[in-house]
Design a protein around this nucleic acid. Structure first.
Length: 160
DNA sequence: GCCAACGTTGGC
DNA sequence: GCCAACGTTGGC
């Protein structure tokens, strides 16, 4: 079983929407980056867990834990002419973009902020993809030791 | 709003 | 295949 971190902008899709969705499950569509596509299509497996991460927001950070409930399948929004994520070069017979379904496991008791993660970038979270300078990938793997460490932060008081 | 990082595009 | 221009991401 593997661990992941998936970015979302709360103004586009937030925890409230996921919590309110049928079966607390959503299709993670709209990813248009080849590296992320490969993870969605090939690497993310049923039962894998992922942090839901808020980006482009006042306090960026991890807000929830999700679980893969359906493995990679073609992203239909790529074929919808009027859709924001429409890609005329994606052929339904040979789809270019993929998505997975994610279910909310639980919210974190508090937001584990980017700032807080950075504070451990030199040690426990060394090499974590999210913390690499200029990282823009919307889906990144998380090592299991790092996953455990990040969760151990949850019950600590927020560092400042 | 600024700007660094970096992926993509397209001319050659 | 190179690389400059351009667009996007995302923290600040």
């Amino acid at each position: 079983m593997r661990y992941w971190l998936m970015k979302t902008e709360p103004t586009t899709f937030g925890i409230e929407q996921l919590a309110a969705a049928p079966r607390r499950t959503t299709g993670w569509d709209g990813v248009r980056n080849y590296q992320a596509r490969n993870m969605l299509r090939d690497e993310m497996k049923k039962g894998d867990e992922a942090f839901m991460y808020y980006s482009s927001t006042e306090v960026p950070g991890i807000v929830a834990i999700m679980e893969v409930v359906r493995e990679g399948y073609p992203d239909p929004t790529a074929f919808e002419r009027r859709h924001h994520h429409y890609d005329p070069d994606s052929d339904p017979k040979k789809p270019r973009w993929f998505m997975v379904d994610m279910r909310l496991q639980r919210r974190l008791k508090r937001v584990i902020t980017l700032e807080e993660l950075r504070a451990h970038a030199g040690k426990e979270l060394k090499g974590m993809a999210l913390l690499r300078p200029g990282n823009r990938l919307s889906i990144t793997p998380v090592e299991s030791a790092q996953w455990k460490f990040i969760l151990s932060l949850e019950s600590r008081a927020a560092a400042k």
